[in-house]
C-alpha cells in the first residue's frame, strides 16, 4: 500500500474532474479520493457537489452511508476480520476474543497502537476461515499465531499518527 498523501485541494479537484463525466460518478470519485488520501476529507464534499451539480447534502448522504468511506484521516493500518456465520462456524468468534484479550486491541474499537481491527461480513473464503483482509491481501485459516503475526506486521507498517 502506498502512503496516503496529505490533503491537497488541486489534486482532489483533478481527481473529481477526471471521473465526473461517468454515468453515476459519485462512488468512483469517493473511491479515488479515499485511495489517494486514505480518507474522504469533508472539504471534498463541496468540490464534488459543485462538479456534479448536486447538493452538498446529497454528497454527504452518500459518503456517510457506506462503511468503506472514512471521514477522518486514519491513524494507522486496518485489518478487516471476518465474523460472518461461516467463519464463526470455524471458530472466528473465539479467535477474536482471545486476540482482544492478548493484544488489548478492541475489535471495532478504533485505532490501538497504529492498528485498527474492523469486523467485515464475508470475504468469500468461507471453506477456509477464519479470514482477514489486510492491504488488499487475503489471509485464510487464521490461527492465534498467524493473526498475531498479521497484527504485528500491521503495527510495523502503520503510519505514525
Amino acid at each position: 500500500m502506498e502512503k496516503p498523501l496529505a490533503w491537497d485541494e488541486p489534486r482532489a479537484k483533478a481527481l473529481v474532474d477526471a471521473k465526473s463525466g461517468l454515468e453515476g460518478p459519485l462512488l468512483p470519485i469517493l473511491h479515488d479520493l479515499q485511495e489517494t488520501f486514505g480518507y474522504v476529507d469533508p472539504r471534498a464534499v463541496a468540490i464534488i457537489a459543485g462538479a456534479l451539480n448536486v447538493s452538498r447534502a446529497e454528497v454527504f448522504g452518500t459518503l456517510s452511508f457506506y462503511k468503506d468511506f472514512k471521514k477522518q484521516k486514519p491513524l494507522g493500518r486496518t485489518i478487516k476480520l471476518c465474523l460472518a456465520e461461516a467463519c464463526q462456524a470455524r471458530g472466528a468468534d473465539a479467535l477474536a476474543e482471545r486476540f482482544e484479550t492478548k493484544t488489548g486491541c478492541k475489535i471495532d474499537g478504533g485505532f490501538h497502537q497504529g492498528v485498527e481491527v474492523e469486523t467485515v461480513y464475508c470475504l468469500g473464503n468461507c471453506a477456509l476461515g477464519p479470514n482477514a483482509l489486510y492491504d488488499g491481501e487475503l489471509f485464510g485459516a487464521l490461527t492465534d499465531e498467524s493473526l498475531a503475526a498479521l497484527h504485528a506486521r500491521a503495527a510495523r507498517e502503520g503510519v505514525a499518527p
Binding site: A84, E85, A86, C87, Y121, C122, G124, N125, C126, A127
Partner: peptide, 11 residues
C-alpha cells in the same frame, strides 16, 4: 455483490 456468508462462486 456476493455478500452472503458461505458463498464464493461469483468470486
Amino acid at each position: 455483490d456476493e455478500g452472503d456468508s458461505g458463498t464464493f462462486a461469483d468470486r
